[in-house]
Amino acid sequence: MAEVTLTIDNKEIKAEEGMTVIEAARNAGIDIPSFCHHEHLEPYTACRICLVEIEAKGRTDLHTACSYPVAENLVVTTKTDEIIEIRRTLLEMMLSHAPDSRDVRALAEEYGAEKDRFAKESSFCIHCALCVRYCAEVKKKYAVGFVGSGTSREISFNPEIASKECWDCRECFELCPTEALQTAYLFTEALTSSSTPFEFEFKEE
């Protein structure tokens, strides 16, 4: 792998071609926050918390660090007033779902996010899809996926698969930044005994 040199927050760092900006930054001890990034999973770019400013080929734009590939001479700034405002607002939206999530609250404190700016809707889930992607990409079981679209999107276990696969696995539980996953699983467990059919949308990337 060829080595490239880039600048992150005024620090010159070396990274291997094929890495993403978030990996390169974390290797160099620079933390870029994210909820949907996971080193063993494909980039998902959904939580948008890892947005950073990237200057490449004379253009400066916001990009998700979890997906942007490193390249020679990239100039990355991980925190600007604009980025702080975006992260703060997104965190406030996440707090409206998961006000007690430790991970969300820790970051919210750092960015001065207000807990009550937005009306509460305690679904607990912040849609990072770590569980969905882990089950699909690593375990290849597709036991948990998303149902609904838009503002009604939510995670749901497929009872048929879950009743066979999840009891001995449950590896996704510790990935969840909130309590949502456990709740959904318990709900599914209850459902499997009644064998109620319901629609399920497979998640494939």
Binding site: T45, A46, C47, R48, I49, I86, T89, L90, M93, M94, S96, H97, F118, A119, E121, I126, H127, A129, F146, G148, S149, G150, T151, S152, R153
Partner: peptide, 21 residues
């Protein structure tokens, strides 16, 4: 849009929800 968005990313999904609220 709240119905037709895929609901994948936070600013679209939750932004729409709160704007509608």
């Amino acid at each position: 849009l709240a119905k037709e968005s895929c609901g994948k990313c936070t600013p679209c999904r939750d932004g729409l929800r709160h704007m509608i609220n």
